[in-house]
Design a protein around this nucleic acid. Structure first.
Lengths: 147, 147
DNA sequence: ATCGCTTTGAGAACGATTCTCATTCACAGT
DNA sequence: ACTGTGAATGAGAATCGTTCTCAAAGCGAT
């Protein structure tokens, strides 16, 4: 079930785009909320029991509405998670280049501050309008190093 | 033409995997070396005049051999560039979410140091074997902000 | 209950990537 | 140079993830 605290703000964000919080979208969001990690479209479809074509469409709409964030996996399909405004806190990703699994991690506040500062200077420096940054670490996860 | 300075080390890296530096692979690498930015598979095929199926295969092998790096674009096809060991220097990317173009930028040494430190601690902290990190900034490039 | 609009779902369509396999090529040994 | 062996090639088929299509169903307001 989608937690009601999230539901409220989701409804608002959807309303802006004249989208409704239907049972399917609820199920998709609930899957993302309870998933331990960013999920592929396929995983969302299975976890939510919503047909794939609808999951594709819903995820696209939710990303568009800023409720869901797309995470670049190692290969084979993008992954999705609740956008930061709708989940716990700012974090980054550990991407396993072997099995493709993506897990979260939170870097130090110091690093975060420095990144913000650096990124904030880009518009003036190179005329690039920043929407967000990605700081991912790639390598082999605990399971895959056991082989 | 692929610069001879690179060619030498490429041959070595290829030899480890029993791969040869053929005319096609030369052309693919030359395209990446002279491209101003990370290129899509299609762009490499055109620039090098090598058939797409061969470009796909060659890029995969070169990535596998650590000679080429895959860069996650905004959408529509991954992009490729020479791996850092074979190109000028360490850098990161500005990815335009509008047109998909990827350009390079170099963050401050201070940020780089802090990232290294943080990333270096991960193996002990969470049992993740780090191969490299990705620090990309997403937004709209100069051209796309003009619309 | 009715109207107008959004949403849905099954399958078709599409595009990027991978696979297949007969042919060609590169290098090592002679 | 000549030959043998495994690597590399290329054209098209096959595959896989994603998007599109369209008729049917759902939701909210009147």
């Amino acid at each position: 079930m989608l937690s009601s605290s999230i539901a409220a703000s989701v409804v608002q964000a959807l309303a802006v785009r004249e989208l409704r919080l239907t049972a399917n979208r609820r199920a998709v969001l609930a899957a993302l909320e309870h998933g331990q990690r960013p999920l592929t479209t396929e995983e969302v479809a299975v976890a939510s029991s919503v047909p794939v074509s609808t999951v594709y469409r819903n995820l696209a709409e939710l990303v568009e509405a800023g409720i869901v964030a797309r995470v670049a996996g190692a290969s084979g399909g993008d992954r999705h998670e609740l956008a930061e405004a709708f989940s716990e806190h700012h974090h980054h990703h550990l991407v396993c280049i072997e099995c493709g699994i993506v897990t979260d991690f939170t870097p130090s506040a110091q690093l975060e501050r420095l990144i913000e500062k650096e990124v904030g200077a880009l518009p003036d420096r190179v005329g690039f309008e920043v929407t967000h940054h990605v700081f991912d670490v790639r390598g082999r996860c605990r399971d895959c190093t056991r082989t």
